[in-house]
């Protein structure tokens, strides 16, 4: 296992494009997560308000709300992480190095595991940054620190992790199917930003029984961390991770993993 992760690391650590993308992404993530109060203050200075509530007094970083707020915010950036995964997987096809790896004695299964370890590593780092930003900003903004509030709502960290692992596996599946970075990125964005939201919107409009809409992959990963912000205008929100969403996501993860496995092990490697 560790050796497979090491092989993946050897492939990436001297790859300048990857290193730059990864550093920019994680810095951006940290910056975005830490700067919400600044943005709210700026909005205040511009005279904006939300339904009569001044932005500056919104307790964005209060425990335990901070975990859901940050996890929701971070989920918008997951597309960038998917691009890194897409580049790493499609490179293996365009350079034909996947073929050489297997000729050299890697089994297709080990290849899949090494990419899975990469995805897990990216997701763990992502969650670690989320945790870091939440802890720093939460402690800095809180008047008193209460242990039980700090741990409350940290299930959203786990939900964020599941969201990333599932989403990045879908990105890997698209990469294996498309084999070219450009095609894969366009397909992922086109599907994730236009096709599915529109399809879900239209279907939701015409059916009353809309539970199956939760099964669409983008919908499913987004449902893990529901939109938290209406709570600041005194609306009811779902402030917990629903078990149903977790089960659907884990199911989608297993399905994409199985398809990835099938393609790598049973098909010719071009």
């Amino acid at each position: 296992m560790l050796q497979l992760l090491k092989i993946e690391w050897l492939k990436l650590k001297n790859y300048k494009t990857f290193i730059r993308l990864a550093i920019v992404y994680y810095l951006l993530l940290l910056l975005v997560l830490c700067s919400v109060q600044l943005v709210l203050s700026w909005m205040q200075s511009q005279g904006m308000e939300f339904q009569g509530i001044s932005p500056d007094i919104i307790p964005f970083y209060d425990f335990p709300d901070v975990w859901q707020n940050l996890a929701y915010l971070a989920s918008y950036l997951k597309f960038f992480l998917a691009f890194i995964v897409i580049i790493s997987v499609t490179n293996e096809y365009s350079y034909r190095t996947i073929r050489q790896n297997i000729i050299d004695g890697m089994s297709p299964k080990s290849f899949l595991i090494s990419k899975q370890l990469m995805i897990l590593a990216f997701s763990v780092i992502n969650v670690a940054i989320l945790w870091l930003a939440g802890t720093i900003m939460g402690v800095a903004n809180a008047s008193t620190f209460e242990g039980h509030l700090y741990f409350m709502g940290s299930d959203f960290l786990l939900a964020h992790f599941i969201e990333l692992v599932t989403f990045l596996n879908l990105a890997m599946l698209i990469s294996i199917l498309m084999k070219k970075a450009g095609f894969a990125i366009i397909l992922l964005c086109f599907y994730g930003i236009f096709v599915e939201p529109i399809a879900v919107g239209i279907l939701g409009h015409f059916t009353d029984d809309s539970w199956f809409l939760n099964l669409f992959p983008i919908e499913a990963v987004n449902n893990l961390v529901p939109v938290p912000f209406q709570r600041y205008i005194f609306m009811e929100i779902q402030d917990y991770v629903s078990i149903q969403s977790v089960i659907i996501c884990v199911g989608l993860y297993l399905i994409s993993l199985t398809i990835n496995y099938y393609i790598l092990v049973k098909k010719d490697i071009a």
């Binding site: 050897l10 492939k11 001297n14 790859y15 300048k16 494009t17 350079y95 190095t97 050299d104 004695g105």
Partner: peptide, 19 residues
């Protein structure tokens, strides 16, 4: 077939790890 952005040695590092 090698990773074009890696040096000869870095490429062989990967092969030596696989083998």
């Amino acid at each position: 077939t090698f990773y074009p952005y890696l040096s000869a040695r870095q490429n062989l590092n990967i092969v030596s790890e696989i083998k």
